[in-house]
Amino acid sequence: MTGTAPALPDAPSSRFEEDTMPPPHPPQDIKPPHGINFFRPRPGYMRSKVTYIWLALGGWILVTFGFQFLLLASQKSSAGTSMLTEASLFGFPFHFWFTGQFLIVWFILLCIIFNLLVDRLSDRTRKRR
């Protein structure tokens, strides 16, 4: 029987204690237990990390491109003028201030938040070991 079964992967190292590693598979199950897939992250460290990535990605896309779509949706002329472009903030036309000044701040903020979350995650997983 064991002669025809596919070889099981090497035993995982002790670092994976906190991961909910699946039990060794019966021979007919050919799906490898270590599939890496962004959309099906392994429980534990990877899943938390991917959650944070989704958060940051969302913040990145929605605010950057969302604002451009907002400009598009609210425009009164083909050049894109609207209430958003006619308002002003800190002396800038509002859309200039938002895209040219605020978005960079937003990127830094996103990265800071991401880093804090990942730092905390790493400390948590390290503590458990």
């Binding site: 995982p12 190292s13 670092r15 994976f16 906190e18 991961d19 270590h34 890496i36 992250p41 392994r42 534990g44 460290y45 990877m46 990390k49 790493s122 997983t125 390290r126 070991r129």
Partner: peptide, 8 residues
């Protein structure tokens, strides 16, 4: 990938 890259 599983161990080194995406493990803790």
């Amino acid at each position: 990938l599983a161990d080194k890259v995406h493990g803790p």
